[in-house]
Design a protein around this nucleic acid. Structure first.
Lengths: 191, 191
DNA sequence: CGCGTAATTGAAAAGTATCAACACTGGTGG
DNA sequence: CCACCAGTGTTGATACTTTTCAATTACGCG
């Protein structure tokens, strides 16, 4: 549920230590909006430590959480390739440490460093691989199944992530989430 | 709604004409299952002409259509990077002409041809960019909005694609789709 | 013409959202 | 030390949306 990419993280850490590229480390407190939707940016970020959420807010003011990002996940990288505005907002949940690249550096790395190129390509492929089945599953299974699934993937999700975020991740209201949790507890399927 | 990628198509056509790589052209009739879910394959395909659907079927036997693929769209490419089983099935809707690459050739091209590398990377980024807002929109808007949106994006969708596929694309039942269409017609918002 | 597939429609059942009230928590200032 | 406040979580009742099921009709094709 909280995605990570240790391979990419360790490679980028290594590159950063070389000091050859202008990769800087940045810190954010919790609940910090790092990227807004429909804006233009000039940096790519990679999480060194902490958890963030990536979400789309629609015209009705609802938030739909795309994924929870953990160590080694990048964000703001799509725009380098598409040259368009950001589609998601990204907000820190816990304290966050990130590596930040300028677009120019990121592009140059992709072009000249074959291993980096491959890792980024793989990360993109993984993102697609992750999104597709998730939305399909959510859509065609009742809420309770989705909650159980969450429970399996990330046993103590409730301790780290607010109910509101969990509901937005599953794509339901908090009320429905609570009802599902209650029912599962009653049936002894939870905890 | 039916996605295309003319840039990639024309570049691959060009490469194929050179005859340097083993890119072959294949033909499929309509309703041909080209890729099954959870299988291992060894080829990447790129649509030269025609329309296909890419869908996930879940344990309940429901199909959730990820996207409709038109000219220039590739499929079966994710597995090259992830090395895992296919997550989607792909089935031709119309008659289909495709270019097929072996994994080895595809990998070699990605590695040695900078332009190809860039186009593939961009195609992956576009796929993500496409999926995210789509699911968000579908989830947080009533069915009628979704139908209207389809109407705008692709005015005569009903002529090419079956009602069942359209419903599976929006993630609703055919019954609900019909009700929405009826209501929109009554309100004079359709046709 | 007859067959199979796709499309249409109604009625009942199931699933979710909405709204509104109330409890719990941690932090702030009087 | 207490009162207050904002944010978060909990719960019930009701209204609404969507699915399910089943029955019928329309269409394309050998």
């Amino acid at each position: 549920m909280i995605r990570t990419n240790s391979e990419l993280l360790s490679y980028v850490s290594q590159i950063q230590r070389l000091g050859k590229w202008g990769i800087v480390e940045e810190e954010f407190g919790p609940k910090n909006k790092i990227i807004e939707q429909d804006q233009r940016y000039s940096q790519v970020h990679l999480i060194k430590e902490g958890i963030a959420k990536c979400y789309i807010s629609d015209d009705n003011g609802r938030e739909f959480i795309q994924e929870f990002l953990g160590a080694g996940m990048e964000f703001g990288e799509l725009e380098v390739f598409t040259g368009r505005l950001s589609i998601c907002a990204v907000e820190s949940i816990t304290h966050l440490t990130v590596f930040s690249f300028s677009y120019a550096d990121f592009r140059a790395l992709v072009k000249t460093d074959a291993r980096f190129n491959h890792l980024v390509m793989k990360a993109l492929a993984d993102k697609i691989r992750y999104k597709a089945p998730r939305h399909s599953y959510q859509h065609s299974h009742p809420i309770e199944d989705n909650v159980l699934r969450l429970q399996e993937l990330f046993p103590d999700f409730a301790r780290v992530i607010s109910k509101k975020d969990i509901a937005n991740y599953i794509g339901i209201t908090v009320r429905s989430l609570n009802r599902a949790l209650k029912q599962l507890e009653g049936a002894g399927k939870l905890k």
